[in-house]
């Protein structure tokens, strides 16, 4: 399902002053593409993702998924938040089954599916644990499983690994790529880490600082799995860095 952003703009009102946060974002994301949105803090990455998810209305423009205009949350696209936002009163397995439960799928079937996705994120055995018993990285994996369980076509991820230490982060990046490879979802992944974007993405959408607009789209055709220490990686990395380090985008 192709995801199309047509001329998206967003203004916020603060103390009676309206000022733009996003300006004319035009983008087409192909099915099964892994796209990273990269930009400095406050440039509107979260806002953009929320608009795509249907959690927020754009001031102008529209989001189109599979030919239909997005007017509110749709289960074709699931958002994964930086703070995981698992339901702390539910066990891991019941968190993962949440979306299926809302769809009215019977207990046995949703339990089976939930176990499958728990397994996919490598957390078998933690079914009956509560989120507070898990580490940050494990929680985010549960959040990914919870999103995958309703079988959306697009995963919207807002700095999902932003709060994790470097080692966990690298591990989860590799694991997400594996899952992406297996499930072939379209992924829109927000980050402000150049390294992360170059490691993961087919394409990087580089945004300017506020008001955010697309500065450049960088296509990365390094073969996967990518080697962070390779010469090619360093070249691409340096190029992307140069884009966001230019004076006008320093906040």
């Amino acid at each position: 399902m192709t995801l199309i952003l047509k001329n998206i703009g967003k203004e916020f009102e603060q103390r009676d002053i309206r000022s733009p946060a996003l300006v004319s974002i035009n983008l087409e994301v192909e099915e099964k593409e892994f796209t990273c949105v990269l930009g400095p803090s406050g440039c509107g990455k979260t806002t953009l993702l929320r608009i795509i998810a249907g959690l927020e209305k754009p001031t102008s423009g529209k989001v189109i998924i599979g030919g239909e205009i997005v007017s509110g949350p749709t289960s074709r696209m699931v958002m994964i938040f930086q703070d995981y936002s698992l339901f702390p009163w539910r066990t891991v397995i019941d968190n993962i089954a949440f979306g299926l439960e809302m769809k009215g799928i019977g207990k046995e079937e949703r339990q089976k599916k939930a176990v499958h996705y728990l397994d996919l994120v490598g957390l078998s055995g933690f079914e009956e644990n509560f989120p507070y018993e898990l580490s940050g990285g494990m929680r985010q994996r549960v959040a990914v499983a919870r999103a995958l369980a309703i079988d959306p076509s697009v995963l919207l991820m807002d700095e999902p690994f932003g709060a994790l230490d470097a080692q966990t982060r690298n591990m989860l990046q590799r694991q997400l790529l594996e899952i992406w490879d297996k499930t072939k979802k379209t992924v829109l992944f927000v980050t402000h880490s150049v390294d992360e974007a170059v490691f993961m993405a087919d394409r990087i959408i580089v945004l300017t600082s506020r008001p955010g607009t697309i500065k450049e789209v960088v296509t990365i055709d390094l073969p996967r799995p990518r080697d962070r220490t390779s010469q090619d990686f360093a070249t691409v990395r340096r190029y992307v860095l140069s884009l966001i380090d230019e004076p006008q985008s320093i906040q």
Binding site: L55, M79, S85, F98, G99, M102, K103, L156
Partner: peptide, 24 residues
């Protein structure tokens, strides 16, 4: 983000009330 997560996972307004707002 609890209610928003529920919404993006396909919960309707009434389901969010029963399954997120009340237990939360």
């Amino acid at each position: 983000t609890w209610t928003e997560a529920a919404h993006t996972l396909g919960a309707k307004e009434r389901q969010v009330l029963v399954n997120v707002v009340l237990p939360g």
